[in-house]
Design a protein around this nucleic acid. Structure first.
Lengths: 197, 197
DNA sequence: AGCATAATGAGACGACTGTCGCAAGAACTT
DNA sequence: AAGTTCTTGCGACAGTCGTCTCATTATGCT
């Protein structure tokens, strides 16, 4: 279904109704599925699947894209690279906590989709919103570091933040919220310091 | 069902049959479920569920506990802490790659179990096998660092390794296998260096 | 206002999951 | 060897998911 061809308003309305219902369902029931959102929105399941063919897509658009700030909003006017990176790290953890259920469900569905797509040629690759965010935070180092080192630093920071890192700290290490914040900040600082001139 | 009370051999046999079948199914079909393992083992589904009530438990026991080395086997005789930590890090990545499908499925099921157990008082907490492994790697620092710092270092390393870190590097950063190895090693080295006297 | 077109709804479908009760079989006890 | 006990298998069950077909409705255009 092409959202940009005729009858746009109708499509926009049903789409919005689905997204609103999805947020409500997730809040009330602590879980989410396409059929559940469809029922809550009083929309046929068949129609709901026409808009969001997977659970994953629904969660992403209904919740994870909500409240997501731009790199500029997060980093602000900070000039110190350490401060810029710290702000991004804090924001990622905070955002993860704020929508923890959605993040966990989304990650679970992504992992299952990867397994299901094993034989296929498709590359399922998730959204990588944290990369541009860290990239902007590191901008002051762009001319200081070689392109290779810059890239290594960027990927290192990305690999030690966000939902995956959060899961490891909470579920594997068994830390509480405060300790999670602390260790996450320490790790990012350690990575950054290694490459700071 | 208590495996340590009478009729042990019978239970042992059916249990083994299920585990063997589970490995085969995972290898052949690229996925795994309790019913699938039961069918492959020619064992009733009801019985299979009596042994492994969740998909998660089956995957863990059938695959993730297989080939898992002891900290001593991994670290060997290395005395240098950097080398010890590097060996653990390499082993964790290697082990993750070796059973990538199982790891992804297991993590997915764990995340869903967490969400499903939201209201309940239960603490689902996963196994945390990498903690004792890093702990032994850091043993030479035990008397050098304060207990707090030692613990922070341990948790930091654990949070930046294993399947979660691997997922971030592959799916979010889009790295290939070699780059994944490289960045993972760099991150662990960066964390360790921050705390090394 | 009327019409062609495209979105939607209703319902059924097959597949899978997890649970249950009850009968049948195997294993330990004496 | 016989009896008891506990595991096991069978089959059925409800619930969910994702897909499909076809009729119905709403929309936007002339």
């Amino acid at each position: 279904m092409d959202l940009n061809t005729g009858r746009r308003h109708q499509k926009f309305r049903t789409r919005q109704a689905l997204l609103v219902a999805a947020r409500q369902v997730l809040e009330n029931q602590g879980t989410l599925s396409v059929p559940a959102a469809a029922d809550a929105a009083m929309i046929s399941r068949a129609t709901a699947y026409r808009y969001f063919s997977t659970n994953e897509a629904l969660i992403r658009e209904a919740v994870l894209d909500t409240d997501w700030k731009t790199p500029f909003e997060v980093i602000g006017e900070a000039r110190d690279v350490r401060e810029r990176v710290a702000r991004v790290g804090r924001y990622l953890i905070e955002f993860t906590k704020q929508h923890e259920v959605a993040h966990r469900l989304f990650l679970a569905k992504s992992l299952e989709a990867w397994v299901a797509a094993l034989g296929k040629p498709k590359a399922p690759l998730r959204g990588a919103r944290r990369l541009p965010m860290f990239e902007m935070a590191l901008e002051p180092l762009r001319e200081v570091l070689s392109a290779d080192v810059f890239d290594t630093l960027l990927k290192s920071l990305a690999s030690a933040s966000g939902i995956e890192s959060y899961i490891a700290l909470r579920d594997v290490c068994g830390l509480d919220e405060d300790e999670t914040d602390r260790i996450s900040a320490e790790v990012l600082a350690a990575i950054l310091d290694r490459y700071m001139p």
